[in-house]
Protein backbone atom coordinates (compact mmCIF):
# COMPACT_ATOMS: atom_id res chain seq x y z
CA UNK A 1 0.00 0.00 0.00
CA UNK A 2 2.72 2.41 -1.03
CA UNK A 3 2.11 5.51 -3.09
CA UNK A 4 5.08 6.26 -5.35
CA UNK A 5 5.13 9.53 -7.26
CA UNK A 6 7.88 10.02 -9.83
CA UNK A 7 8.68 13.09 -11.90
CA UNK A 8 5.06 14.21 -11.92
CA UNK A 9 3.96 17.37 -13.76
CA UNK A 10 0.47 18.76 -13.27
CA UNK A 11 -1.42 21.50 -15.09
CA UNK A 12 -4.18 23.92 -14.23
CA UNK A 13 -6.12 25.59 -17.03
CA UNK A 14 -3.66 24.40 -19.66
CA UNK A 15 -0.58 25.77 -17.86
CA UNK A 16 1.88 23.50 -16.11
CA UNK A 17 2.15 24.62 -12.47
CA UNK A 18 4.33 21.90 -10.92
CA UNK A 19 6.88 19.62 -12.52
CA UNK A 20 9.34 17.00 -11.36
CA UNK A 21 7.40 16.22 -8.19
CA UNK A 22 8.50 12.97 -6.61
CA UNK A 23 7.98 11.31 -3.24
CA UNK A 24 7.04 8.01 -1.66
CA UNK A 25 4.32 7.60 0.91
CA UNK A 26 4.68 4.45 3.03
CA UNK A 27 2.18 2.88 5.41
CA UNK A 28 2.23 4.65 8.74
CA UNK A 29 3.66 7.80 7.20
CA UNK A 30 2.12 11.27 7.03
CA UNK A 31 3.36 13.80 4.50
CA UNK A 32 2.40 17.48 4.79
CA UNK A 33 2.50 19.54 1.58
CA UNK A 34 3.55 23.14 2.01
CA UNK A 35 3.80 26.01 -0.43
CA UNK A 36 2.38 29.46 -1.10
CA UNK A 37 -1.12 29.99 -2.48
CA UNK A 38 -1.48 29.13 -6.14
CA UNK A 39 1.54 26.86 -6.32
CA UNK A 40 -0.71 23.93 -7.25
CA UNK A 41 -1.35 21.95 -4.07
CA UNK A 42 -5.00 21.38 -4.93
CA UNK A 43 -4.12 20.55 -8.54
CA UNK A 44 -1.54 18.03 -7.36
CA UNK A 45 -3.99 16.38 -4.97
CA UNK A 46 -6.75 16.25 -7.62
CA UNK A 47 -4.29 14.64 -10.03
CA UNK A 48 -3.28 12.04 -7.45
CA UNK A 49 -6.96 11.36 -6.73
CA UNK A 50 -7.44 10.61 -10.44
CA UNK A 51 -9.75 13.54 -11.14
CA UNK A 52 -7.42 14.94 -13.78
CA UNK A 53 -4.67 13.37 -15.87
CA UNK A 54 -1.01 14.22 -15.16
CA UNK A 55 0.91 16.07 -17.86
CA UNK A 56 4.02 13.97 -17.36
CA UNK A 57 5.46 11.44 -14.95
CA UNK A 58 3.49 8.87 -13.03
CA UNK A 59 1.80 8.33 -9.73
CA UNK A 60 1.41 4.71 -8.80
CA UNK A 61 -1.38 4.36 -6.32
CA UNK A 62 -2.66 0.89 -5.49
CA UNK A 63 -6.17 0.61 -6.88
CA UNK A 64 -9.03 1.06 -4.46
CA UNK A 65 -6.81 2.39 -1.71
CA UNK A 66 -7.25 6.13 -1.84
CA UNK A 67 -9.77 8.38 -0.12
CA UNK A 68 -9.90 11.99 -1.27
CA UNK A 69 -11.27 14.94 0.64
CA UNK A 70 -11.55 18.32 -1.05
CA UNK A 71 -12.16 21.89 0.13
CA UNK A 72 -15.88 21.18 -0.06
CA UNK A 73 -17.44 18.68 2.32
CA UNK A 74 -19.94 17.19 -0.11
CA UNK A 75 -22.67 17.23 2.51
CA UNK A 76 -26.37 17.26 1.70
CA UNK A 77 -28.10 19.96 3.72
CA UNK A 78 -31.43 18.15 4.00
CA UNK A 79 -29.94 14.87 5.22
CA UNK A 80 -28.99 14.31 8.86
CA UNK A 81 -25.38 13.86 9.89
CA UNK A 82 -25.85 10.10 10.19
CA UNK A 83 -27.67 9.81 6.86
CA UNK A 84 -24.85 11.65 5.10
CA UNK A 85 -22.35 9.17 6.49
CA UNK A 86 -24.52 6.10 5.90
CA UNK A 87 -24.64 7.01 2.22
CA UNK A 88 -20.86 7.07 1.90
CA UNK A 89 -20.52 3.94 4.02
CA UNK A 90 -22.72 2.01 1.61
CA UNK A 91 -20.97 3.48 -1.45
CA UNK A 92 -17.65 2.20 -0.06
CA UNK A 93 -19.25 -1.02 1.13
CA UNK A 94 -18.21 -0.59 4.75
CA UNK A 95 -20.64 -1.26 7.54
CA UNK A 96 -21.20 0.99 10.46
CA UNK A 97 -20.90 4.74 10.90
CA UNK A 98 -20.92 4.75 14.71
CA UNK A 99 -17.13 4.61 15.03
CA UNK A 100 -16.75 7.49 12.59
CA UNK A 101 -19.32 9.61 14.42
CA UNK A 102 -17.64 8.88 17.72
CA UNK A 103 -14.19 9.51 16.27
CA UNK A 104 -15.04 13.04 15.19
CA UNK A 105 -17.14 13.68 18.32
CA UNK A 106 -20.42 13.94 16.41
CA UNK A 107 -22.57 11.40 18.30
CA UNK A 108 -24.72 14.09 19.89
CA UNK A 109 -25.35 15.66 16.47
CA UNK A 110 -26.15 12.46 14.62
CA UNK A 111 -29.81 13.25 13.93
CA UNK A 112 -29.34 16.92 13.20
CA UNK A 113 -29.66 18.01 9.58
CA UNK A 114 -26.43 19.12 7.98
CA UNK A 115 -28.06 22.47 7.19
CA UNK A 116 -28.26 23.17 10.93
CA UNK A 117 -24.64 22.37 11.68
CA UNK A 118 -22.05 25.08 12.20
CA UNK A 119 -19.21 25.43 9.70
CA UNK A 120 -16.80 23.62 12.02
CA UNK A 121 -19.28 20.84 12.72
CA UNK A 122 -19.85 20.39 8.98
CA UNK A 123 -16.11 20.13 8.48
CA UNK A 124 -15.88 17.47 11.18
CA UNK A 125 -18.69 15.55 9.50
CA UNK A 126 -16.88 15.87 6.17
CA UNK A 127 -13.74 14.43 7.76
CA UNK A 128 -15.70 11.64 9.45
CA UNK A 129 -16.47 10.48 5.91
CA UNK A 130 -12.81 9.44 5.63
CA UNK A 131 -13.30 6.99 8.47
CA UNK A 132 -16.21 5.24 6.77
CA UNK A 133 -14.34 4.80 3.47
CA UNK A 134 -12.05 2.18 5.00
CA UNK A 135 -9.34 3.32 2.57
CA UNK A 136 -5.69 3.24 3.75
CA UNK A 137 -4.32 6.31 1.92
CA UNK A 138 -5.94 9.64 2.77
CA UNK A 139 -5.43 12.57 0.41
CA UNK A 140 -6.61 15.69 2.21
CA UNK A 141 -6.92 19.22 0.87
CA UNK A 142 -6.91 21.82 3.66
CA UNK A 143 -8.69 19.56 6.15
CA UNK A 144 -8.58 22.02 9.02
CA UNK A 145 -10.42 24.95 7.44
CA UNK A 146 -12.92 26.40 9.95
CA UNK A 147 -11.90 23.98 12.73
CA UNK A 148 -11.15 25.38 16.20
CA UNK A 149 -8.01 24.33 18.11
CA UNK A 150 -9.82 21.59 20.02
CA UNK A 151 -11.16 20.11 16.77
CA UNK A 152 -7.75 20.34 15.10
CA UNK A 153 -6.29 18.36 18.02
CA UNK A 154 -9.16 15.87 17.71
CA UNK A 155 -8.48 15.51 13.99
CA UNK A 156 -4.73 15.11 14.58
CA UNK A 157 -5.59 12.27 16.96
CA UNK A 158 -7.75 10.61 14.30
CA UNK A 159 -4.93 10.87 11.76
CA UNK A 160 -2.46 9.48 14.29
CA UNK A 161 -4.74 6.49 14.96
CA UNK A 162 -5.07 5.97 11.20
CA UNK A 163 -1.28 5.94 10.82
CA UNK A 164 -0.89 3.58 13.73
CA UNK A 165 -3.31 1.19 12.01
CA UNK A 166 -1.04 1.08 8.96
CA UNK A 167 -2.68 3.91 7.01
CA UNK A 168 -0.99 6.85 5.34
CA UNK A 169 -1.97 10.49 4.83
CA UNK A 170 -1.01 13.19 2.36
CA UNK A 171 -2.14 16.55 3.71
CA UNK A 172 -2.03 20.00 2.14
CA UNK A 173 -2.28 22.53 4.93
CA UNK A 174 -0.98 25.88 6.09
CA UNK A 175 -1.37 25.40 9.84
CA UNK A 176 0.57 23.24 12.23
CA UNK A 177 -1.48 20.11 12.87
CA UNK A 178 0.58 19.07 15.87
CA UNK A 179 1.57 15.90 14.04
CA UNK A 180 5.21 15.88 15.05
CA UNK A 181 5.95 12.65 13.22
CA UNK A 182 4.73 14.05 9.89
CA UNK A 183 7.31 14.79 7.23
CA UNK A 184 7.07 18.08 5.38
CA UNK A 185 7.39 18.46 1.62
CA UNK A 186 7.85 22.03 0.39
CA UNK A 187 6.52 22.33 -3.16
CA UNK A 188 8.34 25.59 -3.99
CA UNK A 189 11.31 23.87 -5.70
CA UNK A 190 8.93 22.09 -8.06
CA UNK A 191 7.33 25.26 -9.41
CA UNK A 192 7.25 24.91 -13.20
CA UNK A 193 9.20 27.29 -15.37
CA UNK A 194 6.84 29.89 -16.83
CA UNK A 195 5.81 29.11 -20.36
CA UNK A 196 5.54 25.37 -19.97
CA UNK A 197 2.33 24.42 -21.73
CA UNK A 198 0.34 21.31 -21.20
CA UNK A 199 -0.64 19.97 -24.55
CA UNK A 200 -0.40 16.28 -24.06
CA UNK A 201 0.92 14.15 -26.88
CA UNK A 202 0.45 16.95 -29.42
CA UNK A 203 3.93 18.40 -29.06
CA UNK A 204 3.59 20.37 -32.27
CA UNK A 205 1.07 22.64 -30.64
CA UNK A 206 3.46 23.78 -27.96
CA UNK A 207 6.03 24.27 -30.69
CA UNK A 208 3.73 26.43 -32.78
CA UNK A 209 2.79 28.35 -29.66
CA UNK A 210 6.48 28.87 -28.80
Amino acid sequence: MEMVVTDLAVARGGLVVLEGVGFTLRPGQALVLRGPNGIGKTTLLRTLAGLQPPVAGRASVPAESLAYSSHADGLKATLTAAENLVFWASVYGTGTVEAALAGMNLLSLRDRRAANLSAGQKRRLGLARLLVTGRPIWVLDEPTVSLDTASVALFAGVVRAHLAAGGAALIATHIDLGLDEAEILDLSPFRAAPGAFAHGPDRGFAEAFG
Binding site: G13, G14, L15, P194, G195, F197, A208, F209
Partner: peptide, 17 residues
Protein backbone atom coordinates in the same frame (compact mmCIF):
# COMPACT_ATOMS: atom_id res chain seq x y z
CA UNK B 1 -8.62 29.84 -34.47
CA UNK B 2 -5.02 28.64 -34.24
CA UNK B 3 -3.77 32.21 -34.03
CA UNK B 4 -6.37 33.03 -31.36
CA UNK B 5 -5.28 30.02 -29.31
CA UNK B 6 -1.68 31.12 -29.66
CA UNK B 7 -2.54 34.64 -28.56
CA UNK B 8 -4.49 33.31 -25.56
CA UNK B 9 -1.62 31.03 -24.58
CA UNK B 10 0.88 33.88 -24.78
CA UNK B 11 -1.36 36.12 -22.69
CA UNK B 12 -1.80 33.41 -20.08
CA UNK B 13 1.99 33.09 -19.90
CA UNK B 14 2.38 36.84 -19.52
CA UNK B 15 -0.02 36.86 -16.60
CA UNK B 16 1.85 34.04 -14.91
CA UNK B 17 5.33 35.50 -15.37
Amino acid sequence: EIRTRRAQALMARERLA
